[in-house]
């Protein structure tokens, strides 16, 4: 390998003189973004906890955990899509379609086939999204906006717009919805496992690296030998499968397959959490840890405001306000030039 004869010794730039303090090391390891989210969570917990002692009880914490599980799953995979520089708006509709089909298949073929069938349908929906984007050269937002409507329509067609099946007596679905392992609800376990899996994928594998690279600069990625189309198809299929899993959990929680209610609007909640967690919509930036912290923050905020008797209309205003505040702070910190449409 070459050793340039003229190379100079690089100037020593000691950004952090001496041994970095515990706090600074903590900051670097966590990322400033995540630390701000933690501080926000601590603040909300303190305020709500001091107002209402019920907040700190174990049953209430379980309520929060199970309430965020479904939107958390979608937020995790949405983060993946956003890091790749794309967006999947159809996840809510896929969840609805999977919810209906899981219940319908369950009625005739039992819980196992019901779950597998629903996940299969999620994979197919994701594959179709990917194909429209890759082969039809359609912008991801437009493509999934179209399938958002189409998948919802299909769910309504096959269910005639009504709730399907009754899973409330099936032990497997009951276990999903209300069971627990080691004292922790199954729903939380599912979120933890999926989030950890995606975190490891992004952080430690070649695939994760390539996803960041594709989102950061797709031309450079192609010239560096990355098969971008394969990544787009793969990520959308994965998103479809996880959205289907969320749909199955909706079925389990409500006791029947729901074509629309329970899943409508979940896509926006997922994007909200990803953005709050620091994912940049233009791609290349974002972490699962950030998204999960954002999901938790949104979850305790909803729960706390309900405990404090805040009108649910005001809750929406508060969540919207929080997102704007978080992103404005992020942008101020990023030091980007403050002109034109921000990225």
């Amino acid at each position: 390998m070459p050793t340039p004869t003229l190379s100079k010794t690089p100037p020593v730039v000691d950004v952090v003189p001496g041994t970095p303090g515990v706090f600074r090391r903590f900051l670097t390891a966590m990322g400033v973004q995540n630390v701000s989210l933690l501080i926000a969570i601590a603040f909300v917990v303190l305020v709500i906890g001091s107002q209402n002692p019920l907040f700190f009880t174990v049953p209430n914490l379980k309520v929060i955990g199970t309430a965020i599980a479904i939107s958390g799953l979608l937020a995790v995979v949405q983060t993946l899509v956003i890091i790749m520089g794309a967006l999947d708006i159809s996840v809510g509709s896929i969840a609805g379609l999977a919810s209906v089909t899981s219940a319908m298949i369950f009625t005739s073929a039992g819980p196992f086939i019901g779950v597998v069938g629903a996940v299969g349908i999620g994979l197919l929906c994701g594959l179709l999204n990917g194909c429209i984007i890759v082969f039809g050269r359609v912008n991801p937002v437009i493509a999934t906006l179209a399938t958002l409507a189409a998948y919802k329509g299909i769910a309504q067609l096959i269910s005639d717009g009504r709730a399907q099946g009754y899973t409330g007596a099936d032990p497997f679905f009951v276990f999903l919805a209300r069971g627990s392992v080691l004292g922790i609800p199954t729903l939380i376990w599912i979120l933890v496992v999926i989030a950890l899996g995606v975190h490891v994928l992004l952080r430690y594998t070649t695939m994760g690296r390539n996803i960041y690279a594709v989102g950061g600069n797709d031309v450079a990625s192609r010239l560096a030998g990355i098969n971008i189309n394969r990544y787009i198809l793969g990520i959308y299929m994965m998103t479809g499968a996880v959205a289907a899993l969320a749909g199955i959990l909706i079925t389990a929680r409500t006791g029947s397959g729901q074509p629309v209610s329970g899943s409508e609007g979940l896509e926006l909640e997922a994007i909200t959490a990803a953005a709050l967690g620091g994912a940049a919509l233009k791609g290349g930036k974002g972490t699962i840890a950030g998204t999960i912290l954002a999901v938790i923050l949104l979850g305790i905020l909803t729960n706390g405001m309900t405990l404090l008797g805040v009108n649910s209309f005001w809750q929406n205003v508060a969540k919207g306000g929080l997102l704007v505040l978080a992103v404005v702070l992020q942008q101020l910190r990023s030091g980007e030039r403050r002109i034109g449409l921000p990225g």
């Binding site: 390539n210 690279a213 950061g216 450079a220 990625s221 560096a224 290349g284």
Partner: peptide, 21 residues
């Protein structure tokens, strides 16, 4: 900038991009 580098990633990630496998 447009065709070779992932500007928001580290020097390390950029160097290793083509030999990750």
């Amino acid at each position: 900038k447009a065709e070779a580098l992932i500007m928001h990633r580290s020097v390390r990630d950029n160097i290793a991009l083509a030999v990750l496998k």
